[in-house]
């Protein structure tokens, strides 16, 4: 098992999301990805993976006001499986 530290987290207003995907590349640690599911309006929406820093970039670029941003007083550790065994890039 390995762990990923999260200094922050977000809440996502999934039902308001219009699926534009602007938040995905805006997230510096790339911990947002689009869902396979769709909200009631029919749009895919972002999901949060472990490793949020609470930087607020997603909030700044979302046209539909879908994000609230928090910074933990003490960082949280998330267990994420055998990520440490992945090895480096192909040589």
């Amino acid at each position: 098992m390995s762990t990923v530290e999260a200094r922050g987290t977000i809440t996502i207003a999934v039902e308001r999301c219009k699926g534009c995907e602007l938040c995905i590349p805006a997230c510096p640690p790339r911990v947002l990805r689009m869902s396979a599911d769709h909200n009631e309006t029919g749009y895919a929406y972002p999901e949060l993976l472990p490793g949020c820093t609470g930087c607020g970039a997603c909030l700044l670029v979302c046209p539909d006001f879908c994000f609230e941003v928090y910074q933990y007083e003490t960082p949280i550790l998330h267990e994420v499986g055998a990520i440490g065994d992945l090895g480096g890039p192909e040589s």
């Binding site: 922050g8 987290t9 207003a13 609470g54 607020g56 909030l59 006001f65 879908c66 994000f67 609230e68 941003v69 928090y70 910074q71 933990y72 007083e73 003490t74 949280i76």
Partner: peptide, 11 residues
């Protein structure tokens, strides 16, 4: 979040 955290940004 249920853990102690500071809210930096609102919707």
């Amino acid at each position: 979040p249920s853990e102690p955290a500071r809210q930096l940004g609102h919707f």
